[in-house]
Design a protein around this nucleic acid. Structure first.
Lengths: 157, 157
DNA sequence: CGCAATTTGTTGCGATTGCAACTGTTGCGA
DNA sequence: TCGCAACAGTTGCAATCGCAACAAATTGCG
């Protein structure tokens, strides 16, 4: 039963990776979430805020403030959705493209250096294991949250 | 170059694991950091706050507030260090032992369920890879932080 | 000894985020 | 068409945490 050792190691590595990323991204006035958002965005197709929140695994309110910040930095632009007045489309500006390119170069250099301690075969195994774990934990979260919030169950109503 | 896929997967799994842990620990009025602190503490030997912060990978100020909270919950006790009037020793109370036992049972049940998707051999490999990654990232952080803060370098002074 | 540097813990402040409540919009069924 | 549920985005509030500044205590060096 080395489960707990896995868990502690994973937790510690998460903290370290997040801290290391912060140090890299700080130069570009971005945090991890903001950077991940820039990676998703594009100059053509705009993302809706709700879709961003689902992809980034955070609340819609967090995306509102995230977009507020990136907009104030001139990196993205909000535009009304042509088909739905409730929605907004978020696209990258030229400055956003530039900032993303700089940050991406720095981050990917760091990531490559970190993962260079793994062989190609090990990476393949790691990815497979992480995917299986992700599926299990996703299911666990879904089960507990829908057990808490009553939602539309299959009982009458 | 699947480094980036590793990275994204790892990041996503971190978020999911943290969220799942929160859901489990919420019942015990603890967050992840508070739980990890309880795990370290003991009824006999007391920990100094600074040592806790190093072990928990967080700032001393965070430990101050963490200890404030756990003390207000009656789970731990501060006592003066006999040998150094600056220091305090933090020990578990009986209530702390009880709360830790309950939370630990719940968390370890969850962890065991999550990691049950890995074979014993895979777990062994995972641990080995995580340890190597931890070493690399630790070194990276140490290098960048000591490059930022001038510290006592090896040059004259 | 005497004073400067270091260490320990605390506080103020700002940044980040989740949750709940809210406004305005859309879609659907009676 | 009306009304209501669902949805998109926002805001208020509280919790959490890092960083910098600080007071008190200790250490170490001249």
């Amino acid at each position: 039963m080395d489960d707990y050792q896995d868990y502690r190691l994973f937790q510690e590595l998460s903290l370290l990776l997040d801290h290391a990323d912060r140090l890299v991204l700080r130069q570009f006035r971005l945090n991890t979430l903001q950077y991940n958002a820039l990676l998703l965005l594009d100059t053509d197709e705009g993302w809706r805020l709700t879709d961003l929140s689902e992809r980034l695994l955070c609340e819609r309110s967090t995306v509102t403030r995230l977009v507020d910040y990136l907009e104030s930095e001139g990196l993205i632009a909000r535009s009304p959705d042509p088909g739905d007045r409730r929605s907004q489309r978020v696209t990258l500006t030229a400055a956003g493209v530039a900032r993303r390119r700089e940050a991406q170069a720095a981050i990917e250099e760091a990531i490559g250096r970190r993962f260079s301690v793994l062989s190609r075969e090990e990476e393949r195994q790691l990815i497979a294991m992480l995917k299986r774990l992700r599926a299990v934990v996703s299911a666990e979260i879904e089960a507990t949250t829908e057990a808490t919030s009553p939602e539309a169950s299959d009982t009458l109503s």
